[in-house]
Simulated assay, not measured.
Amino acid sequence: MAAKAVGPVKRSFAPWRDPASAPFIEFRNVTKRFGDFVAVDDLTLTIYEREFFALLGPSGCGKTTLMRMVAGFDEPTVGEVLLDGQNLAGVPPYRRPTNMMFQSYALFPHMTVEANIAFGLKQDRMPKADIATRVEEMLALVKLTPFAKRKPHQLSGGQKQRVALARSLARKPKVLLLDEPLGALDKKLREDTQFELVDLQQKLGLTFLIVTHDQEEAMTVADRVAVMDQGRIIQVATPAEVYEQPNSRYVADFIGDINLLEGRITVCNDGFIRLDCGVGGGTVEVDQTMDATPGENGWFAIRPEKMTLSLDPPENPTVNCIAGDVWDIGYLGDVSIYHVRLAGGATVKATVTNRTRLVERPISWDDKVWLTWPRDAGIVLTR
């Protein structure tokens, strides 16, 4: 029988929108201090059962500390961490229904693949026959049955990653904690493994909590993403909402490429905003509902792929249109990224899909170009 796609499950899964849904993992006003340093600052967060949740942010933002508090390696200085309704305060790591997969994999070099997977089960004093059955299941799950007798030094990076994953899942935890799990893999293998993780999580029906600084990884695997900075959560939303509707310049700038045009709000009513972005930016009109006051400063945020690049001026070059000179071009194969220098000196990016093979580039360095976009292409931010 053919494997089923996860699409129908993914489309219907949104317990955070249901007021009757009870959180599976809760952080209640959690603060964690290490001496004078505040790693987590009065943070409240809810994660739901069977959710693939990503903590995303730069190094030192507190995401790994949050994960360690779920695992039991750190305790909150203030606040509570709950799992399935139970306060985890004082519960040692080995008594928590969680398991962690580390970036380094931490495989035992002198043990075979099957012995590495069986290690935690032996520590739990599981009967030998049950251990053998479980190890067999895990090997089949991660497609490593032919490699059962090999040792870690005989495996590729991707195979080691699968062994570590199988070992983490062997004890059937309620929550799998993934600390930068794909960081050691090359780009192509990392991309393939991201989708394998999603399929595996759906198949097992477990709650996955992943810590990463790789935005593409978080956007690919997660049902929801929490963007963090300096111990606080800036925004929690689905990957599409974080990308298309960031709540601040920090989130807009952290997730993907963004162009930010600063200006003054002149009109804000009935789902319509007009922004005067001055020299270079011109007049920007946006279909958007928000609380803002005319005269207030704002930033128009638009992704490079939402802009249309042309050598010919549009019919109305005064609204949602900026002109400039091509300053630089980056060819990435599937797309080209154009850096356009505006009249005021600012530079914006525009992405053009390379739909045909490039024999001669139609728009080249130093060309005068116009960038245009529809009213629903970007968003106005006030913080």
Rank of each mutant, 00 (worst) to 15 (best):
G158S: 08
Q123T: 11
P173S: 07
S156H: 06
K128E: 13
L139H: 04
Q123G: 12
Y105I: 08
K149V: 09
V163H: 06
L177P: 01
T133E: 15
V163D: 02
A148C: 12
H110S: 04
V113H: 05
L178W: 10
M138T: 09
D130P: 02
H153F: 15
P146M: 02
K160R: 15
K128R: 14
P127H: 05
K143W: 11
E137Q: 15
L169Y: 02
Q154K: 07
V175Q: 01
Q123E: 13
R167H: 10
L169S: 03
A132V: 08
R162W: 11
Q154N: 09
H153C: 12
R150Q: 10
R167I: 00
A118K: 02
L144G: 00
A132E: 12
E137H: 11
P152I: 10
K160G: 10
E136S: 15
Q159C: 09
L169K: 00
V163A: 13
I117M: 03
K143R: 15
R162T: 10
V175A: 04
V113Q: 04
L107N: 00
V175F: 00
L141A: 09
K151M: 13
L139E: 01
R125H: 15
S156L: 06
A164I: 11
E136N: 14
V163W: 07
K172D: 15
A170P: 00
L107A: 01
S104L: 04
A129C: 13
L155F: 12
T112P: 07
Q159H: 00
S168F: 09
L141R: 01
G120P: 05
A164M: 10
M111A: 05
L177N: 01
P152V: 08
M111K: 07
P127S: 08
G120A: 13
R167V: 04
V163M: 12
L121I: 12
L165N: 05
S168E: 00
L177W: 00
M126Y: 09
E114A: 14
V163E: 03
F108E: 00
L144I: 04
E137V: 05
Q161D: 08
A166Q: 00
R171H: 10
P152M: 09
A118Q: 01
Q154T: 01
Q159N: 06
A166I: 03
L177I: 03
S104R: 04
A115F: 06
A129R: 11
I131W: 07
K122P: 11
K174E: 07
A148I: 07
M126E: 08
G158Q: 10
G158M: 13
F108Y: 14
V135K: 02
P146L: 01
Q161P: 09
E136M: 14
Q159T: 04
Q154H: 07
E137P: 04
D130Y: 06
R150F: 12
T145Q: 15
P109Y: 06
P152K: 05
L169I: 02
V113G: 07
R167E: 05
T112W: 11
V163G: 07
A164Q: 07
V175S: 00
F147S: 14
I131C: 13
R125W: 12
P173L: 13
S104G: 05
A170V: 02
L165G: 08
